[in-house]
């Protein structure tokens, strides 16, 4: 399996334009990138990965402050070959691929929780790690290191709950 074979499987099925960057790591392992411009093409990619008996390893999201967009990168594995597929979104949504690849489940839920990017069509709405009292998209915020390390809170939520417990 190589990136050329994968490209042959997807090129006639994609709805939009895309770029492919073939690459290898220091040790000669395939580590290629595909950049999509059409959101629903991620479903095409996921179906192709499934057809090759691959899996979603994880997805990475980050916020681009300069143009107020988010970048989402899905990292797929097909028998040891990594394919990184990138899509940018300006409306904080992507099309969920979890209905196609179950292995993307947690990755998409974490994306929603940390960056408030909604994977449309994801079967689970529950929080993954953070409590509901913490707003979605907390990693979009700037939080200083001192605040992060000291755990200083802007709110009295914690102490109100403690006081409520003491009074009870």
């Amino acid at each position: 399996m190589n990136i050329e074979e994968f490209n042959n499987a997807i090129k006639s099925k994609l709805y939009g334009a895309y770029e492919i960057k073939e690459d290898v790591d220091h040790y000669g392992n395939d580590n290629s990138w595909i950049i999509l411009h059409e959101k629903k093409d991620m479903e095409v990619i996921a179906k192709a990965v499934k057809a090759f008996k691959g899996r979603c390893v994880v997805a990475t999201g980050y916020f681009n402050e300069a143009d107020n967009t988010h970048t989402v990168i899905y990292h797929f594995d097909i028998d040891g070959m990594i394919i990184n597929v990138q899509i940018d979104t300006d409306d904080k949504t992507v099309i969920s691929i979890t209905p196609i690849l179950r292995s993307a489940d947690w990755a998409e839920r974490e994306l929603r929780e940390m960056y408030d990017v909604e994977p449309i069509g994801h079967p689970t709405k529950d929080r993954l790690f953070l409590d509901y009292s913490i707003a979605k998209g907390v990693l979009n915020e700037y939080i200083s290191l001192s605040k992060m390390q000291m755990g200083v809170s802007d709110t009295d939520v914690l102490w109100n709950q403690v006081n409520k417990g003491v009074k009870a």
Binding site: R127, L128, F129, L130, V138, L139, L145, M148, Q149
Partner: peptide, 12 residues
């Protein structure tokens, strides 16, 4: 239910 040891390390 997870998240009891979440430390925000990816932000840190």
């Amino acid at each position: 239910i997870n998240g009891f040891i979440h430390r925000g390390m990816e932000s840190l």
